[in-house]
Nucleic acid binder design. Structure first.
Lengths: 338, 338
DNA sequence: ATGAAAGCGCTAACAT
DNA sequence: ATGTTAGCGCTTTCAT
């Protein structure tokens, strides 16, 4: 088992020795090259090259404080919605030459805590996260310790914490109203756990729309809790099919991945969409428009969401709370398309 | 502009002072609690809680060496193929309680270098990356400095570096053969820049398949270089449509995102798939089977790819080179489905 | 322009 | 069981 070079990594003092200067001078050519004469600078640079010296970030950080790095924690890295948000963050951070590290909590509060801690230990300036629980104490504490925190995709419940969100109540209400307008009087809502804020808000939106239409939510709404991915959609769809009544059903999915799973299952079972089952998704991901049955969905300003979160992180001013508005995109799957 | 608490973060010596013990003891309750009597441990723990002390990772790392952290650099975080790979890595790393930080190079060698350096500075044990260039010198140097390196999705050109890849020559050849079997005698290959290894290999695979069929690649193959995403597909499709001949065309896409863009454009323009244009993708991402025209694609063992890369990273033994075999999944878009 | 040296927060070896 | 201390690699005064 060949070991990658036994010898210790070169340090700044190795460089100093080889170049015949002091460590302070090496540090200067690294950080303030103009302070150093051309001749010595060249000698030092040659030594750096020869030793393949890379400064030790931990030491630098320990001395200096933190680095221009931000962290993002999303619920699911395989959900295009979150990767688009991350992309938006990167685009903003790049302007200030910050770098982004991404992690996925898988909706697990423990994993979330671990990454939060890891990021803090690594000295990030700030972190944007889609929280997996309602609890903000850890985040408040983090903020107290000088790490900038931005809540992603949910409004901040406290004035100290910044947030960038999309109005989920409004979005879900739009989706529900649309299905009601197609003549449905009962809705099935394939939702995630309500401990996740977006899920709770979207549920509230559906209930509000039902109530506004004069329907009793207890009667007209059935909420099924499923995993927030395509498998969750399959699971939900199978549950629905198991007790088919023959009457048309309207299904509202908490995100497009779930909707994808639903559509996949319905197609396999030969169920007509939107005739027998009308389906609405949420997020309007890239592929939503290109599915066998193009998917009606609630579009969110994904890229802007990330961009704005990163902007808040970089600017680091007062804790703002930004809310975007979603938009319903009607396609075939809900039976509402032209 | 409210500052997050002016006061310095609590350090281990603050804790020691408050608890009336030495720093060594605090360090012990942190790292070897059993070495410390229950009574003092409790006092220390109380002090930690009161000061909201979080150990400084940089200091720890500086002292100890590196952390159980790995980095992954992929070409495009919004491509489901890469996020599935990352998921595979996470699954393996979780077993050993390592954590993964993900970054996206956007195919930009400079960004790649920046992240490589960032990860190294942050003291990762190892990094898995999908290189954006053929050049492995930086990686070799990194490896020399004791950072484990695994090439992702391309075979290692040097024995020192581990790699986990899928046979791209074989995969592309399968796809090309399939289109030829449908009666096409000319192929359009929407490929990425050949500086990216996968693109080069897939091109080689197509050429080989053509040659094996007795066709002259110079005649029978047209390669168009496009960005590796849906926009790239749109671009490629528009270029094709601009010089329509009326004869059926076969289009092979370097990945499913490109294929999605092609299908989207063809649908908008009312072009019949697979009648007028046959389309084959690559990667077989989740949604490939659910598109308006279900997409023929080359399936890769995505999750295993990531899992194995992470396994190599964690085990850190000799530099293995693992190669998986792809599989053609025939659907409607190529005209070959039942 | 360059050098010397203190010290960032922590761990681990050693001493008690 | 607990305390003392050297030192990880770097930046940054302060001297020269």
């Amino acid at each position: 088992m060949p070991q990658p070079s036994r010898r210790r990594r070169a340090s700044i003092s190795d460089v100093a020795r080889l170049a015949g200067v002091s460590v302070g001078t090496v540090s200067n050519v690294l950080n303030r090259p103009q302070r150093v004469s051309a001749a010595t600078r060249e000698r030092v640079e040659a030594a750096i090259a020869e030793l393949r010296f890379v400064p030790n970030g931990s030491a630098r950080q320990l001395r200096v404080g933190s680095m221009t790095t931000a962290g993002a924690i999303v619920l699911d890295l395989t959900n295009p919605f979150f990767t688009d948000v991350a992309r938006g963050m990167e685009d903003r951070l790049a302007q200030d030459d910050w770098t982004l590290m991404v992690a996925s909590s898988e909706e697990d509060p423990e994993r979330e805590t671990r990454f939060l801690r890891l990021f803090e230990e690594h000295g990030v300036q700030g972190v944007a996260l889609v929280p997996s629980t309602e609890d903000v104490d850890r985040l408040l504490a983090l903020h107290e310790r000088g790490v900038r925190v931005v809540l992603l995709d949910r409004p901040s419940p406290v004035p100290e914490l910044a947030s960038v969100a999309v109005d989920d109540v409004a979005g879900a209400a739009m989706a529900a109203r649309h299905l009601l307008a197609q003549g449905h009087e009962r809705l099935v809502f394939l939702n995630g756990p309500r401990t996740i804020h977006q899920c709770a808000d979207r549920h509230a939106g559906v209930v509000a729309a039902l109530a506004a239409a004069g329907l009793d939510p207890h009667e007209a709404l059935e909420e099924v809790t499923v995993p927030l991915n395509a498998d969750g959609g399959e699971q939900g769809a199978r549950e629905l099919l198991a007790r088919r009544t023959g009457r048309p059903v309207a299904v509202l999915c908490v995100n497009d991945l779930v909707a994808l799973g639903v559509l996949r299952t319905l197609r396999r079972e030969g169920v007509d969409v939107p005739g027998e089952v009308a389906v609405v998704g949420y997020d309007d991901v890239t592929f939503a428009a290109e599915l066998t049955i193009p998917l009606t969905s609630v579009r969110q300003p994904t890229h802007d969401l990330g961009w704005t979160a990163a902007d808040l992180l970089v600017r680091g001013g007062a804790a703002e709370s930004v809310v975007f508005q979603p938009e319903l995109v009607v396609r075939e799957s809900s039976g509402g398309a032209a």
